[in-house]
Computed example of a mutant assay.
Amino acid sequence: MTTNKNMITKLAKLSFSALLGFGVMVSAQAAPTPTNPTNPTIIQSKPIFFGDGGEYPFSSAVRVGNTLYMSGQIGFKDGKLIKGGIKAETKQALDNINGVLLQYGYQKSDLVKCMAMLTDMDDFGDFNEVYKTELNKPYPVRSAFGVASLAANASVEIECIAAK
C-alpha cells in the first residue's frame, strides 16, 4: 500500500509539473490539513541539463525539481548497436536507462513514465518479456508506438521520466 501511495504521489507531482509548465514543481502536500491549512506550496526550480549527446544536439537528461526527464535510449553499447534482435536491444536500452538514473542519483523504482518506440509491433511480446524482467511492480505508466525507423537502425527506443 505504501509503495502505491509513493507512486501516486510521484505521478501527482509529475502531472502538476506538466500542467504548470517546465520550471515548476508542486510539493507532496497536495491538500490542506489541520496542521497546514494553506494550499500546496509551489517551488520554482530552474531546469538543470546533464550530459550531452556528443556530436548530437541533445542532453542525456534534464532535472526540473525532483523530476528527471531522460532522452530516449537505444541498444547502444561501446558506441554501436548491439546484435541479437529486439530482446537484446531492449535489455541494453534498459541498462542504459539504469545507468543514466544511477548517474544522476535515481533508481529504477523512481521511474514514473516510459515511452517505447518499436519498428515492428510484432516484437511487442518479446519487448514486454524483457521489460517485465528488468523492471519491478508497480510498473511505471507506459505508452508504446510503432514507428517507421529509429536512429542507427535500432529496433526499439525507450524514453523515461523519473521522480523522487
Rank of each mutant, 00 (worst) to 15 (best):
Q44H: 11
G146Y: 03
F124G: 03
A116H: 04
A152V: 12
G105L: 10
R142M: 12
M1T: 08
K83M: 12
A148L: 06
N98T: 06
K5V: 08
N96W: 06
T9P: 01
G84D: 09
E129K: 12
E55I: 06
K13Q: 13
G85M: 09
A116T: 09
T2M: 12
V26R: 07
L68P: 01
N6M: 14
F76I: 07
F49E: 10
T90R: 03
N136E: 15
V147N: 05
K113Q: 12
I8P: 00
A30T: 15
T41A: 15
D52L: 04
V24M: 12
M115F: 03
M117S: 12
P138N: 10
L118N: 06
G51Q: 07
I161C: 06
G146M: 02
M117K: 14
D123V: 05
S149L: 00
F145N: 01
L11K: 02
A88F: 05
T67W: 11
A163E: 13
N6K: 15
F127R: 01
D126V: 05
D78A: 07
K132Y: 11
T33A: 10
N128F: 15
V112R: 05
P47Q: 04
S59E: 13
T90D: 07
C160K: 03
I8H: 04
Q103R: 06
A28E: 14
M121P: 02
V100H: 03
G54L: 08
T2Q: 15
M115R: 07
G21V: 00
K10C: 03
M25A: 10
G125N: 14
N96C: 03
Y139D: 06
T41M: 14
F145G: 00
E55S: 12
A93W: 06
V112S: 11
P138M: 11
S27T: 15
G99C: 02
T67Y: 11
F58M: 04
D126T: 04
I74T: 15
A154H: 08
L135A: 09
G75K: 10
R142V: 10
A148T: 12
V62H: 09
T67P: 09
K46L: 05
G85R: 09
V26F: 07
E55T: 11
K132N: 05
